[in-house]
């Protein structure tokens, strides 16, 4: 009975640690979107302020 309870605790801890590791990897890796495929930046002309 006690051994089963200890195993349950151990599995829970392992599951939490693995979950945290996966969350950390997901948080750090990847990108936030797709860059624009067309278009670009141009400076505003003075008459565009008026």
């Amino acid at each position: 009975m006690a051994a089963g309870f200890v195993a349950l605790i151990r599995r829970t801890i392992v599951a939490v640690v693995v979950g945290m590791a996966v969350a950390a990897v997901l948080r750090v890796r990847g990108r936030g979107g797709v860059p624009p495929q067309t278009g670009g930046w141009r400076e505003l002309r003075d008459d565009e302020f008026e």
């Binding site: 624009p36 067309t38 278009g39 670009g40 930046w41 141009r42 400076e43 505003l44 565009e48």
Partner: peptide
């Protein structure tokens, strides 16, 4: 410090 505009996207 010149402002810019992004142009050309849909």
């Amino acid at each position: 410090l010149r402002p810019c505009r992004f142009e050309g996207f849909i």
